[in-house]
Amino acid sequence: MVQAVLSDIDGTLVQSNWLHASAWQDAFSVGGIDLDVEVIRRQIGKGGDELIPVFVPYWRRRILEEPLKAYRKFVFQQDYLEKVEAFPCTRELFHRMKKSGIKIALSSSANKDELETYKAIARVSDLVDISTTADDVDRSKPHPDIFETALRRLGAKPASVLALGDTPWDAEAAGRAGVRTIGVTTGGWSQQELYDAGCIEVYKDVSDLLSNFDHSAFVTLS
């Protein structure tokens, strides 16, 4: 029986991946690094500690990493945060999970203040049991730290938990923590890409998952 879900939020519950990619594009541009927004989008789901090294060599990272993170956060809050919207049926899906006795942990590479804003946008603050963010760990996704911290706080075993996410980084991080992942394609990754990353089921979005909840792994896994 599934006892808990470790849910991502960016791109899974709220429509924000391309907004984050645009904010990173702005930050990299200020640092003299010009990147296509889609190239950056495929790294969204990682925290800045894992995303920046993809594009910035070590010798420049020592100087640029903290300014890039700070400017990305500033420009996202100033120019993009107000554009974030919840995907339809997010609250209804969480209600269905709670009705089934499933505890809900938000497990995100976002920082704590952004996560609190997203919870309000998605209208799920009262349904969430615990939250774990990049601020709580040394390494963000695709490392397992965020999921492992959530498991400890829940007092749950990996075999009794499912992760919910929209990127291969979610599936990889969860897999390293011994947790199986259900994917949604709202983050811009294809169904096949998410299966290849280790997802056991993939749905179009959280609304699709809600419609098929009684036949999903949340119900069928013993």
Rank of each mutant, 00 (worst) to 15 (best):
A177I: 05
A177P: 00
A177T: 03
G178I: 05
G178A: 05
V179H: 00
V179I: 12
V179G: 03
R180D: 15
R180S: 14
R180G: 02
R180H: 14
R180Y: 11
T181E: 06
T181Q: 05
T181Y: 00
T181V: 11
T181K: 01
I182C: 02
I182D: 00
I182N: 04
I182W: 03
I182Y: 00
I182R: 03
G183M: 03
G183V: 01
G183S: 07
G183P: 04
G183C: 02
G183Y: 02
V184F: 05
V184Q: 08
T185N: 11
T185E: 14
T185D: 10
T185W: 12
T186Y: 04
T186M: 01
T186R: 01
T186P: 08
G187M: 04
G187L: 01
G187N: 08
G187Y: 02
G188Y: 03
G188T: 12
G188M: 10
G188N: 11
G188K: 08
G188V: 12
W189N: 08
S190A: 12
S190T: 15
S190F: 14
Q191D: 13
Q191M: 13
Q191Y: 13
Q191E: 15
Q192N: 14
Q192H: 12
Q192M: 13
Q192F: 06
E193R: 12
L194C: 11
L194A: 06
L194I: 10
L194G: 03
Y195G: 00
Y195Q: 06
D196N: 14
D196E: 15
A197W: 01
A197P: 05
A197R: 02
G198V: 04
G198W: 01
G198M: 05
G198S: 10
G198Y: 01
C199W: 01
C199K: 02
C199P: 02
I200A: 12
I200V: 15
I200L: 12
I200K: 13
I200N: 03
E201C: 04
E201L: 03
V202A: 09
V202Y: 04
V202P: 08
V202S: 08
V202I: 10
V202C: 11
Y203L: 08
Y203Q: 09
Y203N: 09
Y203G: 09
Y203S: 10
K204D: 13
K204M: 04
D205G: 10
D205N: 15
D205M: 04
V206T: 13
V206R: 07
V206G: 04
V206C: 07
V206E: 01
S207V: 00
S207N: 12
S207A: 15
S207G: 15
D208H: 15
D208Q: 06
D208V: 09
L209S: 08
L209Q: 10
L209E: 09
L209C: 11
L209K: 07
